[in-house]
Design a protein around this nucleic acid. Sequence first.
RNA 1: GCUCGAGUGGUGGAAUUGGUAGACACGUUGGACUUAAAAUCCAAUGGACAUUAGUCCGUGCGGGUUCAAGUCCCGCCUCGAGUACCA
Length: 1208
Amino acid sequence: MTYDFRKIEEKWQQFWAENQTFKADNDSQKEKFYVLDMFPYPSGAGLHVGHPLGYIASDIYARYKRHKGFNVLHPMGYDSFGLPAEQYAIQTGQHPAITTETNINRYREQLDKIGFSFDWSREVRTSDPNYYKWTQWIFIQLFNSWYNKDADRAEDISRLIAIFEKEGNQSVNAVCDEDVALFSAADWQAFTAKQQQEVLLQYRLTYLAETEVNWCPALGTVLANDEIVNGVSERGGHPVIRKKMTQWSMRISAYAQRLLDDLAMVDWPQPLKDSQTNWIGRSEGAEVTFRVLPLAPPQGGGTTSDLNRDSSSPKFHTADSDIYGVLLERAKDMRKNPTKAEAKLWEALRNRNLDSKFRIQHPISRYIVDFVCLEKELIVEVDGEIHQYQLNEDAERQLLLEQKKGYTVIRFTNDEVLNDIDEVVYKIETALNSPSLGGGRGEVNSQAQEISVFTTRPDTIFGVSFMTLAPEHELVSKITTSGQKEEVEAYIAATAKRSERDRMADVKTITGAFTGAYAEHPFSKEPIPIWIGDYVLAGYGTGAVMSVPCGDQRDYDFAKHFNIPIPNIFEGVDISELAFADKEKTVIANSDFLNGLPYKEAVKRVISELEQLGQGKGKINYRLRDAVFSRQRYWGEPFPVYYVDGMPQMISAEHLPIILPEVEKYLPTETGEPPLGNATIWAWDVGKSAVVSNQLIDDVTVFPLELNTMPGWAGSSYYFNRYMDPHNEKEIFSKEAMDYWQDVDLYIGGSEHATGHLLYSRFWQKFLFDKGVVPKPEFAKKLINQGMITGTSAFVYRVDFEASWSLNKKIKEPSLTKPMYVSYDCFKEIDDLYKFILSSEISAQDKNIFANGNGFTKGLASVIEDTVFYNLLDGGKKDTLKIFMRLFEYVQNDIRTQNVGAIVHGLKFSPIHVKVQYVNASDELDIEELKRDSEFGEEYKDAIFIGEKGEVLPFGEDLGGAFKVSREVEKMSKSKYNVVSPDAICEEYGADSLRLYEMFLGPLEQSKPWNTAGITGTHGFLKKLWRLYHSGREGQFKVDNSPLEGGEGGVAEPLKESLKTLHRTIKKVEEDIENFSFNTSVSTFMIAVNELSAQKCTSRAILEPLAVLVSPYAPHIAEELWSKLGHTTSIANAPFPKFEGKYLVESSKEYPISFNGKVRFKVELPADLSKEEIEAAVMAHDKTQEQLQGRTPKKVIVVPGKIVNIVG
RNA sequence: GCUCGAGUGGUGGAAUUGGUAGACACGUUGGACUUAAAAUCCAAUGGACAUUAGUCCGUGCGGGUUCAAGUCCCGCCUCGAGUACCA
């Protein structure tokens, strides 16, 4: 009997299906074990051998746990909403539901062939209304919840309303929008219903908000951050831009801290935890408020910040007192000698009937201004030519007067005054009447602006030399001075135009603009210039930073670029080249009360000082943003939402599911609405509680429904819970089912879901936990990332040539009549020759004759015997040269006979992918099969293949050499022709061989290349295993039924050796499975079968447990052997063999004897010898004496059971 | 740049707390069986020298600890994954 795997596998797959062998019971006395695989998206391409890797591992574990007596839940289903089906629908008009169904059927067929022990009775599909009913239900729960920070959990929105009614929102400590206004209970009562809804939306865990989103015009949808790779969409690689849209968002940020903390609860791979930690991005620091110095600050009423002014002195004493005398003398001087223009303007100002009084050459602060109206705080300057070279000083002076002193400065040139005095006076009048002007001293002109920044280094606050706002920051337009307006606006426009991708592409270009405004340092009260720059991100923190160039490299670079001072506030640190960012080594200097403090203490101190000032507090910031939940897509879950007066309303749960409507087109509507805008029956009738025609919308009883759909992660964020009770129509799952199954014990899947699916799922789980729906705050205890299986691509080398041909004739580029390909060996030798030319010690000129940099060999025809270059070649290279010459001549002849007037100069060999299925284990290409290929056969049909030794097959010289390909490990992909389908493997070697081989390849977590050749190893093992049970005449099944003890009736008991083999195997396999080291247990099986075969073991006492051991890995053959052993029920629940150490006890040990750590020989010694006895026995040994050659060892180290080392 | 992971024969990979490096398999070479091929079986297979015993070198590189290091420590190099102006 041969091992007929096709028949066996089909038989048992059918058996399992018919008997529902793997159906998990919700009502069992057994202990539960939940093994889960990540939800597949059923793509049209089907599975390749990389996909089932994780499924095989989890299946082995699930089957093992069944043998160990657990009630195992091992379900499978489909994440069947998604982009590809919709893209396909847009292209072909085919309904996504149909393509999805087809793809699922193909997936199922492929999965079934591999023999997985899934409980298919629990299959779910996210696109099934019976499933997404509960996705909608969870959405409603989120909408009806808010996050109470005091309780640190989600609570029902009704509780919040109750608080509002009683006391307003002052005492509410919730995670909510940034800009929530304070209101009292009375205010709340006075709000209209709509206003109340608006307020509540600011608190709900899912809310509508205008958000800046990643809009992908080509896909017509919004993408999540993790759906964008390198600035383009993950699927399709289309450009992505920033756009503001009203979107549903999920307040995942409320859970940031818990998502971080609870990572400690789960046994997940550290890299995955790290990447979630980074994604959440917690940083501790402080929020600091900087006052913006007003453009025209109040100067009276004692609120002035000008500390130098003597309040008792007259109002026109505006100069700084220390230099008042000097300035006044100078001013008097200047009044006597006015310029022409000054005199003319002074006359005009006095003669015209202006309401305001002007002074000429008046000292203010440390300057003398030309004209000033003190009431209106307007300074008029007339610039002579002399000012041209002192523009900078003027600007500085103007800034001081404007920012610190609150004056408005207007300037005229001499020419303006002399030529058009009327126009000048008109401008002055206009300026006097402008409302932005002080309008009289003591009056507050506008409310003070503040900038809040988040910093992780509040200790460096005295190193602030400027502030930087994101260009999108809302304050920018409010604080920019008229002088800087143009520059700032130009900069903002330029930044907005730059796509995210451009911004990322050149992070090195430093750009920014000065707003003209100044902020006040909270401690030193010094003015700090406010800049904008796109290195500050609008979306992080407050969108503004206090820039400390000495302590932050980005600030440093910015300061250097714009010539902003870089004050050093670190003790003993050189900052002339680089910023200093090492917290540990920080000692603060030049910082008032912080001097001499290290980082940690300085932070504490500064925060407490800021708190006293009311200008800051300690704060924890998270990088994690709220997740946008709307997609402008058809093929997704519809929201259970309709709109009344623009406010979203939930449809009550009893009317769910709201079924995805039919549409004619899957594209956005002409008005740019999502595809659901094409639906004609898509309105909600509150009276009938039904979806009705859009034409009935009257906004009284019939309202429009939401047009967005939910994103891909909606349905996959709770499916693991639904599997526990997948057909429940009344609840998302019953309490009993949940109480029994609790959570996932083992989850296997790819690491690519680290910051998407796995974070969102944890978020929903925590929410459902808060609501008491699930019993555990984390859904998966243990998680394993399986590695990727990469492909091994195969290449042939196409012969290309370089030629020159007449351009006069209208001839297309010449090509060979028949394409030519050379085998890898042949290519390699020619390539070596080519490289030899390039590296030879011949002149550059000579090199250029023989070869050029583009890989073309040329001019080799001139290499004839006894030339200098020829003599450089060794024998092998001379042979290669001959082969090359023949090729070259052939190509030359071929082109010449085409009579196109082209001359061939050189040859090149280009690697071309060929389908790996035509390549055997020895890397030989099956040319005949390749020529028959349905897709590419034509291309190769007439091609010439030149083999290993340069034999030219079509020239009639078959030297019997093979045609080899070169191989390279690449990602498995259709375009690289290296995809291997599991179907083909199952067909040729069987599912059991595939399962074993996938495990045998290497550690589960590691990525490793697939090479079909190796599968003969595991296939051969299965054949050997089969033969072990079929050692009878002509391969008949033969198992010796003797009981373990006794050996009655003349049949021998199992050999001691066989028992040792068996129990060693039990021990190893058990340990391996528990450690998820599946590759090593396959080796163990091989060793066991090799040994048992050598022992000619036929004993049932050995072979029966062996079948159970193998069963998780190779279930089909195990079932067949099990039934041949006389069992009528499946092997699936047979108990796992029990390991007994007594069979492994050895009576002797072969000790390696090493000298100075090097093993020289081995000595067989009884296992129970003491250290001393071992030493004595070893020292007495002939070989020991031979090694020592009379020397006395310094030391003898004996490790019983391990090794003996003799030193000396 | 930062974070994490990994470097062992021609290849995939073993080596459990420091204790015989290269298990197991692929590939390669030779042999048996066969008219032949496939399949199967047997033998050899890290490198170098010696081909009889044997000797030396070998786990990315350079140091160190130890009787003993692939494994531990220090410093580098290379590759891979994630992330990216995160204040």
